[in-house]
Design a binder for these strands. Structure first.
Lengths: 244, 244
DNA sequence: TAGTGGTCTAGACCACAAA
DNA sequence: TTGTGGTCTAGACCACTAC
């Protein structure tokens, strides 16, 4: 019987010794991943090395890695290694506006340094922000209107870079300009009546219902990177899910 | 080396022999579960017995069972056994109407034997159906209006049983009256303008947007049990999800 | 007490990818 | 060729549940 209780084995935080080995290793590995110990393009240590670090067998560390892969935190590729996973926005609510499986065109209508509303300040942790007003279109037709706030000073490049250098997708643009990578997001959908200004910009009828989606995007450490409110034309929204 | 290729080992269907053992066992076990081989209240064979049936080691069959538990098809309880899992409707879209964490009251306004629309007939596999018109309320206030169709003759009891015996939840009622158990469902949400009749029954303004949710519920074999269209008051709908 | 699933180990061999 | 993850096995011991 090995004595793990009194042994230094790589854990940076005290853990409940009553927990199974795999649970302790899982908690610690997840913490290390979330503390950005490994960049997205560098592999984690190999199974054998991790087994040594946590003083467990290969089978146990393999279970831990399988669990982390199942929860979406890492990706494993045979022959190459284990990598921290970038998020996929396939299930994002905004993907359910009928856009014919293409990335909608993106047009930034306004950009300014602003003092953010208290609600947005509470999320971003600062009232100093860049505001973007952005219209998304498919085949030249307006689909969605977005009010976006990103925090300063971290995102100063978003304020100062010429808009021509922005792509149709903002998150790769953020990464390129600021180095910050969106890892998670939460989204909330509500259904609202349109107001006149939205209807005008979206070019839709005054009584066309809108889907309002509030998204908060964060990096892997949980730090907020973006507050976004999207107003989409209701009749083009079509959300589908399975229950089981 | 054992010779599995020429051995009868419980597989009822031919499987690709190039697949790993765990994949073949998983496919076959999932098929057996979906063919209702085990009732919800009876355990599957123990790990050791399944390992014998599929001629694999305990470790391999444990991996298969862990995968099936992860995908939600089975539940494992230490000391008791492995059971086919009933579905949870926690993530259902209709749960996202503000109802204060209680089951909304249910009022069946109409019940009749009908010839279903072609669209509903295509789903249910028959045009002979029972139609229910059902209002759901919280604190006496209308929340949602539902057009429900269930197939005949399987659901004749739903047509003939006194409505007083119906509970606020339909699926347990179906199970009690007909023995059919809902195992999966698909849901689709769209945003629509209200029409006068909906607004009247829901007691809301004429320009209040509605969330329209179409649900098809099926048993574990995939047989359709119910077609349901729910119209909910848009301003009370609030859907939240996480992306990672 | 018997039987279930849960934890953990040690080790063999295979498939894939990069240098 | 080397190192990675993927598959599979055999077996020990523990924890929980029912009888």
């Amino acid at each position: 019987m090995q004595d793990r209780g009194s042994k230094v084995c790589g854990m940076a935080q005290p853990v409940d010794q009553r927990l199974p080995l795999h649970a302790r290793a899982l908690d610690d590995l997840a913490r290390r991943i979330r503390s950005s110990e490994w960049p997205y393009d560098q592999p984690l240590p190999a199974e054998a090395e991790l087994a040594r670090q946590y003083d467990v067998s290969l089978g146990t560390i393999r279970r831990v890695l399988a669990d982390l892969a199942g929860s979406g935190l890492i990706e494993r590729r045979q022959g190459r290694g284990t990598f921290v996973r970038r998020p996929s926005f396939e299930r994002s609510l905004v993907r359910f506006f009928r856009a014919g499986d293409v990335v909608p065109e993106s047009r930034i209508l306004e950009r300014a340094e602003v003092t953010a509303d208290p609600e947005i300040e509470a999320v971003l942790g600062t009232s100093d922000a860049v505001q973007l007003l952005r219209l998304r279109l498919t085949a030249g037709e307006p689909l969605m209107l977005e009010h976006i706030h990103v925090p300063l000073p971290a995102f100063r490049a978003v304020l100062e870079t010429p808009l021509e250098q922005f792509g149709d997708l903002l998150y790769p643009t953020y990464e390129q300009l600021t180095g910050h990578v969106v890892a998670t997001a939460s989204e909330e959908l509500t259904v609202i009546r349109p107001d006149a200004s939205h209807a005008a910009l979206l070019g839709c009828a005054d009584d066309e219902p809108l889907a309002r989606i509030v998204r908060v995007a964060r990096d892997i450490t949980g730090r907020p990177l973006e507050h976004r409110v999207s107003f989409g034309i209701g009749s083009r929204f079509h959300y589908r899910m399975e229950i089981s």
